[in-house]
Amino acid sequence: QEKAGKAPGLVTDRKAELEQLDSVELHRRLSQVDPEMAAKLHPHDKRKVARSLQVFEETGIPHSEILHQQQEEEGGGPLGGPLKYPHACILWLHADQAALDQRLEKRVDDMLAAGLLEELRDFHQRYNREKVAENRQDYQHGIFQSIGFKEFHKYLISEGNCSPETSALLLEKGIQALKQVTKRYARRQNKWVRNRFLKRPGPNVPPVYGLEVSDLLRWEEDVLKPALEIVESFIQ
Rank of each mutant, 00 (worst) to 15 (best):
R218H: 10
K225V: 07
F56Q: 02
F123W: 09
E212F: 01
E212P: 01
Y209G: 09
Y127A: 14
S23E: 06
H27C: 02
Y85D: 15
E118P: 05
H124P: 02
T59H: 00
A98Q: 09
A88E: 05
R184D: 15
K183Y: 06
K40C: 06
K48Q: 01
L116M: 11
L104N: 03
R188H: 15
M37P: 00
A7W: 05
L41D: 00
L169A: 12
E172V: 10
H68M: 15
E58H: 05
V24E: 13
A16P: 09
V49T: 00
A88P: 01
R126W: 08
A227I: 07
D96V: 01
G202P: 02
P201T: 09
P62I: 04
R194G: 09
P8L: 07
D122N: 12
P8V: 10
I147A: 14
H27L: 03
F149C: 03
T59M: 01
L178P: 00
Q137R: 11
A113Q: 10
Y127G: 08
V181C: 12
K150Q: 15
I175P: 00
C89H: 02
G77M: 02
A98N: 08
E105A: 07
P62Q: 02
I61C: 04
A16Y: 14
P201K: 07
V213K: 12
H153R: 13
Q180W: 10
F152V: 02
L171D: 01
A39F: 06
L41E: 00
V11P: 09
K199V: 11
E58Q: 06
Y85A: 14
L91G: 00
Q32V: 09
H87V: 14
F56E: 03
A113K: 11
E105V: 05
A98V: 04
H27E: 03
K84H: 10
G202W: 04
Q125D: 13
Q236S: 14
R121D: 12
L26M: 02
P43C: 03
R188F: 13
E73K: 11
Q54P: 04
D22P: 03
Q70C: 13
P43V: 01
R28C: 03
G60V: 13
P164G: 08
G142K: 09
G202Q: 04
N190Q: 12
K3I: 12
R129F: 08
R126E: 08
P164Q: 10
A114Q: 07
I157Q: 11
D109G: 05
T12F: 13
E151M: 06
R218Y: 06
V213H: 10
N190T: 05
V108K: 04
N190R: 12
R28Q: 07
E212I: 02
R126A: 12
V223M: 08
A16C: 11
I143S: 13
G80E: 01
E65S: 10
E2G: 09
R196L: 04
E19R: 06
L224S: 10
L120V: 01
T182I: 12
E212K: 07
A177V: 01
P86K: 04
T182Y: 14
W219K: 08
K3A: 15
P8T: 10
W192F: 09
A4Y: 08
K106R: 15
H44S: 11
A7H: 05
H63M: 07
L83S: 08
